[in-house]
Computed example of a mutant assay.
Amino acid sequence: MKHVLLPTDFSENSYNAIKYALQLLSEEECTFHLLNTYTPILYDNEYLVYSATQPTLTEIYKNNSLRGLNRILKRIKKNFPNEKHEFKRISSFNMLSDEIKEQVKEKEIDLVVMGTKGATNADEILLGTHTVHAIKKTKCPLLAIPAHFEYRPPKEILFPSDYETDLPPLLEILQEIAARNASNIHILHVYFGPSLSEEQEKRKKALGEFFKDQGHHFYSIADKSVPQAIYDFQEDNEIDLLVMINNKHSFFENLLFRPVVNEIGFHVKTPFLVIPSGKKR
Rank of each mutant, 00 (worst) to 15 (best):
I145A: 02
V260Y: 00
F252L: 14
T165Q: 15
S161V: 09
L256T: 07
D223Y: 10
Y15Q: 11
F251E: 04
Y231E: 14
F10W: 04
Q103V: 14
H148A: 11
L111F: 06
P154C: 10
N13Q: 01
L207E: 00
N45E: 15
F80Y: 13
Q175P: 07
V104T: 05
S97K: 12
N16S: 07
P168V: 11
Y20D: 00
Q214S: 11
G68K: 12
P194L: 09
K2D: 03
N247A: 15
H148D: 13
N79W: 04
D162G: 07
P146F: 01
G193E: 02
Y191E: 06
N82P: 04
V104H: 00
R152W: 03
F93M: 12
T31H: 06
E199K: 13
P168N: 09
P7H: 01
K204N: 04
L127Q: 01
R89M: 15
Y15M: 11
I264S: 01
I177L: 13
Q54V: 10
H249C: 09
I145K: 01
D223F: 10
N121R: 13
I18A: 01
E12N: 15
A178W: 08
S277M: 05
T165C: 12
G278W: 05
R203P: 02
E201R: 11
E46C: 13
F192P: 01
L158Q: 02
I264P: 00
N79C: 07
N45A: 15
F80H: 13
V268Y: 01
K269N: 08
F10K: 05
S195V: 08
M114T: 08
S225G: 07
E150D: 11
T129D: 08
V261T: 13
D166G: 09
E238M: 07
E201M: 12
L111G: 06
K77N: 12
T53Q: 14
G208H: 08
K155P: 06
K202Q: 15
P259V: 00
N237G: 05
S197E: 01
R152E: 14
A182V: 09
F251P: 09
V4S: 02
E59R: 14
L35F: 04
F218R: 04
H249Q: 14
N184K: 15
K202A: 12
N82A: 07
Q103P: 01
P7D: 04
D232A: 12
L5A: 05
G278E: 13
E164S: 15
S26L: 03
I90G: 00
E150I: 13
L35M: 05
I72M: 08
